[in-house]
Lab assay of single mutants.
Amino acid sequence: MATADDFKLIRDIHSTGGRRQVFGSREQKPFEDLVDLGWLKRSSVDSRATHYQITERGTSAAL
C-alpha cells in the first residue's frame, strides 16, 4: 500500500524528468518500494549506482 512519502517521492521524480540515479543500498529502499508498487522500474544497475525510470503507472500516481 502506498504511503504519503511514496506519493511525495514519485511527484519529485516526475517533476525532475522521470529518472533518478541512486548510490548506496540504504538510499535505494524508498525507490525499491516504488518498484514494488509498479511506479518505477530499474533501468540499469552498475557497481556504484542504480538507475530508476518512472513508469506510466508512476506518472498517473504523480498527477
Rank of each mutant, 00 (worst) to 15 (best):
K8W: 11
R57D: 12
V35D: 01
D12M: 10
V22S: 04
V22Q: 03
R48F: 14
Q21D: 13
D33S: 13
I13V: 07
G18D: 03
R57S: 14
L63M: 11
K41H: 10
Y52L: 02
A61H: 04
F31V: 02
K8C: 12
V45T: 10
T16G: 10
R19N: 11
G17L: 04
L37T: 02
G38Q: 04
G58V: 01
D5C: 14
S25I: 11
S25T: 13
G58P: 00
D36I: 13
M1K: 13
G18S: 03
M1F: 12
S47V: 10
Q28L: 11
L63F: 06
D6L: 09
M1S: 11
A61Q: 05
H51F: 13
F7G: 02
K29V: 07
E27N: 14
L9G: 02
E32Q: 09
E27I: 06
I13C: 02
I54K: 01
G58F: 00
Y52E: 01
R11K: 11
S25A: 12
D5I: 06
R26Y: 14
A61P: 01
D12C: 14
A49H: 09
T59C: 12
T3Q: 06
E32G: 05
Q21E: 15
M1W: 11
S25G: 10
G17C: 08
R26L: 15
I13E: 01
L34H: 00
T55D: 02
S47E: 14
M1T: 12
E56D: 12
S44H: 15
Q28I: 09
T59Q: 09
F31D: 00
G24C: 11
Q21L: 15
G18Q: 02
A2Q: 04
T55H: 01
A2D: 03
Q53H: 09
D6T: 04
R42Q: 07
S15L: 13
G58Q: 00
S25W: 09
D6R: 06
Q21W: 15
K29G: 08
R57H: 09
L40H: 00
L34C: 03
P30Y: 06
T55K: 01
T16E: 10
R42P: 06
Q21T: 15
S43I: 15
L40M: 04
L37F: 05
E27L: 09
W39F: 03
E27W: 09
F7K: 04
D33Y: 11
Q28D: 05
S25C: 12
D46A: 07
I54Q: 02
H51C: 15
R11W: 12
F7H: 05
K29D: 05
Q28T: 10
V35S: 02
S60I: 14
E27A: 13
F7D: 02
S60H: 14
A62Q: 02
I10W: 01
R42H: 06
A62E: 02
L37H: 05
V45L: 07
A2E: 05
R11A: 09
K8T: 09
R19M: 12
T3S: 10
A61V: 09
Y52I: 01
A61D: 02
R20L: 10
A61R: 03
T55M: 02
L9T: 03
D33F: 11
S25L: 07
R48V: 14
R20Q: 05
G17T: 04
A61E: 05
R19Q: 13
H14M: 12
D12Q: 11
R42G: 04
S47Q: 11
S15K: 12
S25V: 13
D46I: 06
V35F: 03
A4H: 10
R26K: 15
D33L: 14
G38A: 04
G24F: 08
D36P: 02
T59D: 04
R20S: 06
A2C: 08
L34E: 00
R57G: 07
L40A: 03
G18K: 02
G24S: 08
L40Q: 00
G58C: 01
K41V: 15
Y52A: 01
I54T: 03
A4L: 12
L34W: 00
P30R: 11
W39K: 00
I13P: 00
I54M: 05
T50K: 07
S44T: 11
S15A: 14
D36N: 13
Y52N: 01
I10Q: 00
R42D: 03
I13K: 01
I54Y: 00
E56F: 07
L37W: 03
S43Y: 12
V45C: 10
A2N: 04
E27P: 07
R48D: 14
D33K: 15
R48S: 13
Q53T: 13
R48I: 13
T16H: 11
S15C: 15
K8S: 08
S43A: 13
L37S: 02
G38Y: 03
E27Q: 10
E56R: 08
Y52H: 01
F7Y: 14
I13N: 00
A49M: 12
A4S: 11
V45S: 11
V22P: 03
S15R: 14
I10D: 00
I54C: 02
P30Q: 09
S25R: 10
G17I: 03
F7A: 03
V45F: 09
D46F: 04
G24M: 06
R19I: 13
F23W: 09
S47L: 10
L37C: 03
T55G: 01
K8P: 02
W39H: 01
L63R: 07
D6N: 12
S43K: 10
S43F: 12
D46K: 07
H51K: 08
F7W: 10
G24Y: 07
S25P: 12
